[in-house]
Amino acid sequence: MELKDVKGSTYIIESQEEEIKRIALELHEGISQNLYSLYTGLEFLRTGVEQDHLKDYTKEMSDLVSRTLQEVRLLSVELYPSTLKTLGLYAALKSYIKLFTSTFGIIINISTVGNEMELTEQKSMAIFRSCQEALINIAKYADTSEATVHFTWEEKRLKIDISDHGVGFDLQEIIRLNKCKGIAAMKQRMSIAGGELCLFSGEGEGTTVSFILTIQK
């Protein structure tokens, strides 16, 4: 029964990720390209229009298309960070952290020790999504202005520690109140990728979430 549950949730998570990736690529390569063609077309029309009111109207439309294009691009990156495949986990997370700070105003200090190794897309994505979840939890609950993300690359292991000095929480109480769905999701993702999650927290003591992943060369 337990094996069936794990297989089921693995399938759900994997197919969700596939679908998210498909939508993100469709937004980036389909809709974005069309919007860009519309934008350049409108800009071209603007240069040929002589009446001032029509020129202004074309400018308004072109601005709107440009804004929509920016929105679609951001949405696509939010859904699926393509840098994960091209530049690797550390660069992708660093880029996400930049966005995170400008969204929530929380400063994240990111550092790394050791040589980055190539991970499979499935493992990279699992760890990336888990880090995202941990950071979002900081924004929602930790009540802190700063946190740290530290990568340790060893020969056959990657460890990522995400720590904050925020309000912390009583894990037992959170479990009792059934408010640990985010933690359970991180644990599940890590388990699918063949890794594990360790969590340390206490009221007034901050929180540290560690993701540990064995790397097979």
């Binding site: 804004r67 951001l74 700070t101 400008s102 969204t103 929530f104 105003g105 929380i106 202005s145």
Partner: peptide
């Protein structure tokens, strides 16, 4: 309560 507002940039909409 803190300085977070200084770094926050919200997207239109």
């Amino acid at each position: 309560r803190n300085q977070k507002y200084k770094y926050i940039t919200v997207r239109y909409g």
